[in-house]
């Protein structure tokens, strides 16, 4: 340490601190593009919706379509299935949701075919409720796609969708 350092300790500290701080800000700002480049890009974000023709689906049948890289189950439910979904007491549910909120048109159930446990695709018309059953870790879903038994924490997710006309659904 020379004489001049002792005379003006404040200025020296200030310069070094300011430089370090400004440097940290710069490094942070430069790091952001390197991180953000892994987020969904503009072309991926633009492919947000898909249209599905459902005219050929009979009651009791279900089809699976790809949307944003994930399967979407579109099930045309029978009267019995609708009744069984709507008669459940909400208190018996792990994740209480009314079937009326999940299926706007009771005949059509549209949901992401992804088990909320660890992301496997459940099997259709299987399990204790004869609806959906995930083979990976044994989660049972009912005819409304709600979790009833097993490790999955929540019901299968319902994406945004609209009926463009009686035979076409637009998902997303």
């Amino acid at each position: 340490m020379s004489e001049s350092d002792k005379k003006k300790p404040n200025r020296r500290d200030f310069i070094l601190t300011a430089t370090t701080a400004a440097g940290a800000v710069g490094v942070g700002a430069a790091a952001w593009p390197l991180i953000d480049q892994m987020n969904p890009d503009a072309s991926v974000k633009a492919l947000a919706s898909t249209e599905v023709d459902i005219s050929g689906v009979e009651p009791g049948q279900s089809i699976t379509v790809l949307w944003r890289g994930k399967p979407v189950f579109i099930k045309r439910r029978t009267k019995a299935e609708i009744d069984s979904a709507r008669s459940v007491d909400l208190k018996d549910l792990k994740h209480p949701e009314k079937d009326e909120d999940r299926a706007k048109d009771p005949e059509w159930l549209v949901m992401l075919g992804v088990c909320t446990h660890l992301g496997c695709v459940p099997l259709t018309d299987k399990g204790d409720y004869n609806a959906w059953f995930c083979p990976c870790h044994g989660s049972h879903y009912d005819t409304s796609g709600r979790i009833r038994k097993g490790p999955a924490p929540t019901n299968m997710e319902v994406p945004k969708y609209v009926f463009i006309n009686s035979s076409t659904i637009k998902i997303g």
Binding site: S2, D5, I15, L16, T19, A22, G26
Partner: peptide, 21 residues
């Protein structure tokens, strides 16, 4: 602009540090 400002800051820091010898 950022690079010019930080260059100036680093320049004075450098002067400070080198003034020790």
């Amino acid at each position: 602009i950022y690079l010019v400002i930080i260059s100036i800051l680093v320049y004075f820091s450098m002067k400070k540090i080198w003034s020790r010898i």
